[in-house]
């Protein structure tokens, strides 16, 4: 217990705790809709775009979040449009955009600062990388994501379950799809400082998949996946502190173990 108190006496740990819990909540809530709509890969694609944006921001000494948030939001809207047009198939478009963004980011980095610890922290995440202004912005944005998700919950459910019915009864489905994409983009950018660009998408996908093994209603899936997400984040954070493993990777492994457990429980029922 004293070790725990000791752990949270560091400022960076307190920041990581607050931001991490909020981002985990956002990711879990959005994840349910994204997984069910077969949009899981969008989170992965966006994180690569986020990496590119962060690399460019650090090359030009700009505030990382202020650059990354608008760029990734724009990429999210673009991906959604590409999906609808079907000139390039959805998954191909995601692969194209994400690897291009990654390539541009890598070139940008190698031309300027070189592969330093900063860049590695973008790839694999670090609890140390959160500055206090970053943390404040993260808290505000994630509260906005949570608020919007709760306020539009009935509409987001309807659009997730049956887009053609919702559209036929006069719901502006494109608006809500865009809302979903924008909220995901913000969550990805906020989460990738801690989780890393390569690992953030698991924060979105795992809790939803675990919850779906056991729960029968949409609401219970949403609530359970939020709980799983926060608990796995806490376990990951603590094990990374005590075992000195990387934070992002520890959280992913906690999520993986949790998924395996739920899967087994779901089978036994």
């Amino acid at each position: 217990m004293s070790q725990l108190i000791n752990m949270f006496s560091y400022h960076f740990m307190q920041r990581a705790l607050v931001v991490g819990i909020l981002v985990s909540l956002c990711a879990a809530l959005l994840g349910v809709s994204l997984v069910l709509k077969r949009y899981s890969m969008i989170g992965d694609g966006l994180s690569h775009v986020g990496f590119g944006a962060l690399a460019i921001a650090s090359a030009f000494n700009l505030a990382p979040l202020a650059v990354a948030v608008p760029v990734v939001v724009a990429a999210a809207v673009l991906l959604l449009r590409l999906r609808q047009n079907a000139a390039v198939k959805g998954d191909a478009a995601i692969a194209m955009i994400s690897s291009s963004a990654l390539a541009i980011g890598v070139i940008c980095v190698s031309l300027t600062t070189g592969m330093n610890t900063d860049v590695s922290s973008y790839m694999f995440g670090s609890v140390l990388s959160l500055s206090s202004s970053d943390a404040l912005l993260s808290v505000m944005l994630s509260l906005a994501v949570l608020g919007l998700f709760i306020l539009f919950y009935p509409r987001l459910f309807a659009v997730t379950f049956d887009e053609s019915f919702s559209r036929a009864t006069g719901t502006r489905t494109e608006l809500y799809n865009t809302l979903l994409a924008v909220l995901t983009a913000i969550t990805v950018v906020l989460g990738m400082r801690m989780m890393g660009a390569l690992l953030i998408s698991s924060l979105i996908i795992f809790p939803a998949l675990s919850a779906m093994c056991l729960c029968r209603s949409f609401k219970s899936v949403v609530v359970t996946s939020a709980a799983i997400s926060v608990i796995c984040f806490l376990l990951g954070l603590m094990s990374s502190y005590f075992l000195e493993t990387p934070t992002g990777a520890s959280i992913v492994v906690a999520d993986l173990i949790c998924y395996a457990l739920f899967r087994l429980l779901g089978k036994r029922k």
Partner: peptide, 22 residues
């Protein structure tokens, strides 16, 4: 196909029909 394995209760699905009265 998405709907056939969608985790939602019957009540949640029926209630979503009231969306145009919201």
């Amino acid at each position: 196909q998405v709907q056939r394995d969608f985790p939602a209760s019957v009540y949640e699905v029926v209630l979503s029909g009231c969306l145009n009265s919201l």
